[in-house]
Each structure stands twice: as structure tokens, then as C-alpha cells.
Lab assay of single mutants.
Amino acid sequence: GREWTEQETLLLLEALEMYKDDWNKVSEHVGSRTQDECILHFLR
């Protein structure tokens, strides 16, 4: 997939603090990424 922007990464980190590993909520918060993309990015 395409590179994550700084904004997307910030949203991901913010969402992780709020929702922990509720990836459905996390991906909704990021908006432009799927659950799978969020998980894969997080694991890097």
C-alpha cells in the first residue's frame, strides 16, 4: 500500500491511546485506513 502520512500516523497513535486494541474503532478514527492496514503499520 501507499506510505502512511505523518497525519495518519498521529491519528493511529491517538486512537491506540483511546481504544487500545479495538481495531474497528482505531481504523474508524484514522478514517483513511482499514483495520488490517492499521495493524500492519502498528506492528512495524
Rank of each mutant, 00 (worst) to 15 (best):
G1C: 04
G1A: 12
R2D: 14
R2W: 10
R2P: 00
R2C: 12
E3K: 12
E3Y: 14
E3G: 13
E3R: 11
E3Q: 13
W4L: 05
W4N: 05
W4G: 07
W4Y: 06
T5E: 12
T5R: 06
E6A: 12
E6T: 08
E6W: 07
E6H: 09
E6K: 13
E6N: 07
Q7P: 04
Q7I: 15
Q7V: 06
E8Q: 08
E8I: 01
E8H: 03
E8D: 01
T9K: 13
T9R: 14
T9F: 11
T9Y: 10
T9H: 10
L10H: 12
L11S: 11
L12F: 11
L12R: 01
L12D: 06
L12E: 08
L12V: 05
L12P: 01
L12A: 06
L13V: 08
L13S: 06
L13R: 13
E14G: 05
E14T: 07
E14W: 06
A15N: 00
A15Q: 01
A15V: 00
A15P: 00
A15S: 10
A15L: 00
L16S: 12
L16V: 14
L16A: 13
L16F: 06
L16G: 09
L16K: 15
L16P: 01
E17S: 05
E17A: 09
E17L: 02
M18F: 08
M18N: 10
M18P: 02
M18E: 08
M18W: 07
M18S: 07
Y19C: 12
Y19D: 06
Y19Q: 03
Y19E: 06
Y19A: 04
K20Q: 05
K20G: 07
D21R: 14
D21N: 14
D22M: 13
W23T: 01
W23S: 02
W23I: 06
W23L: 03
N24K: 13
N24G: 12
N24T: 10
K25I: 03
K25A: 12
K25E: 08
K25W: 02
V26K: 02
S27C: 08
S27Q: 14
S27R: 11
E28D: 15
E28A: 03
E28Y: 04
E28G: 08
E28R: 10
H29V: 04
H29S: 04
H29L: 05
H29P: 00
H29N: 07
H29M: 06
H29Q: 08
V30E: 00
V30A: 00
V30R: 00
G31S: 10
G31R: 11
G31K: 12
G31C: 10
S32H: 08
S32T: 14
S32R: 07
S32C: 08
R33S: 02
R33Y: 01
R33K: 11
R33I: 00
T34D: 10
T34S: 08
T34Y: 01
Q35P: 08
Q35Y: 07
Q35I: 07
Q35M: 09
D36F: 05
D36N: 06
D36A: 10
E37L: 00
E37S: 03
E37N: 01
C38W: 01
C38H: 01
C38Y: 00
I39W: 05
I39P: 04
L40P: 05
H41R: 10
H41N: 12
H41F: 07
H41S: 04
H41W: 08
F42C: 05
F42G: 15
F42L: 05
F42H: 15
F42A: 11
L43V: 14
L43F: 13
L43S: 15
